[in-house]
């Protein structure tokens, strides 16, 4: 496939936003159970939510660039019964709304306990909103990933690893972001976030690595023989029927060399995982929000490369029909 920057931005930006929200909420839950010092609801949770929301909104805006008719985007919620894209379109705003409420709750101090959990842990509105947000957040990860994973003949994508990757990669970037944010807004918690960020990054590395290994072993199920229905081991396309290119040659081919692809792969393997981890460690050691911010930036760049590669590596069976001009 030919990676589209709108989609790369969409998926990476909302991934980071989702991860950041999960980090905030994890922090809140830990704090609830006194595993972490409580943070300031305004400067930490509300501002954090706003940052997450900003990422989500930026993703949303990016997604509009992918549409031929953004003014009709509202129509895309219609087919939630069958379409993961439609579901994503529903879940993303729902999630954003929830994050907004979550942040608003923290900002406005909706902290009067509504009820208590066994053990006397008070549950307030933000906690409930956070729980709902978490569900939606995972729902959104699943929707986004399933958009790709549900296409059976895009075999590189058609695996549960795609869902896991989206969750882990989004989570990792969000937690790195949370680490950087907390270093500024709640330094006491930055170690906590940093720890999880490292765990998630390593987890993402494992699952992404697994999918890379899997994909290199894939044997195409469609061949020219099945594509045109002629049984012969030696079939060569001579003409695709037109010479100046078409949608089918622009949308489904990245047009880059193998070497370029290899470069991007190693690039993201380095930029999205070890480098951010090192910078993270350095940043935590130095307690520097700037360095930690750098870790996030590096990882984000890596993830963009990862996403580019994710699209480029997917070999669409339609490409069998568009091999040669003459």
């Amino acid at each position: 496939m030919n990676p589209a920057f709108s989609v790369i931005f969409l998926t990476t930006l909302i991934g980071a936003g989702q991860g950041l929200f999960l980090a905030l909420y994890t922090g809140q839950v830990y704090a609830l159970f006194d595993l972490l010092p409580a943070q300031d609801s305004r400067s930490f949770y509300a501002v954090g939510s706003a940052i997450a929301l900003a990422f989500l909104a930026a993703g949303l805006v990016a997604s509009f660039f992918h549409l031929g008719h953004p003014e009709r985007a509202w129509r895309s919620a219609a087919m939630w019964r069958t379409s993961w894209l439609s579901r994503e379109v529903i879940v993303l705003p729902a999630f954003m709304g929830t994050v907004f409420l979550y942040g608003a709750g923290h900002w406005l101090g909706w902290q009067s306990p509504l009820f208590s959990l066994p053990g006397g842990y008070p549950v307030d509105a933000t906690l409930l909103l956070g729980a709902a947000g978490t569900l939606l957040c995972f729902g959104l990860f699943i929707c986004t990933a399933m958009i790709y994973a549900c296409l059976k003949f895009l075999r590189e994508w058609h695996t549960p690893l795609t869902v896991i990757n989206y969750i882990l990669l989004g989570g990792a970037s969000g937690f790195v972001l949370a680490t950087a944010f907390s270093a500024a807004a709640a330094p006491a918690a930055s170690g906590f976030f940093g720890g999880w960020a490292a765990v998630l990054t390593l987890g993402a590395l494992t699952s992404r690595g697994a999918s890379l290994v899997r994909n290199t072993r894939l044997k195409p199920r469609s061949t020219l023989a099945t594509a045109i229905g002629v049984r012969h081991p030696r079939i060569v396309q001579k003409s695709q029927g037109f010479m100046g290119g078409s949608f089918n040659t622009r949308e489904f081919f990245h047009g880059r060399s193998k070497a370029f692809l290899g470069g991007v792969k190693w690039g993201f393997l380095v930029l999205a995982f070890p480098v951010p981890l090192l910078v993270l460690a350095a940043g935590l050691a130095a307690g520097s929000p700037a360095i930690l911010g750098g870790a996030f930036l590096v990882q984000y760049l890596g993830l963009m490369a990862e996403r580019w590669f994710f699209f480029a590596q997917a070999n669409h069976p339609q490409n069998l029909y568009y091999q040669a001009i003459s």
Partner: peptide, 14 residues
């Protein structure tokens, strides 16, 4: 149609 191209990705035949 919003021109999201998703259907074209979902068609194996190009």
């Amino acid at each position: 149609c919003i021109g999201c191209k998703y259907c074209s990705w979902a068609c194996p035949y190009g």
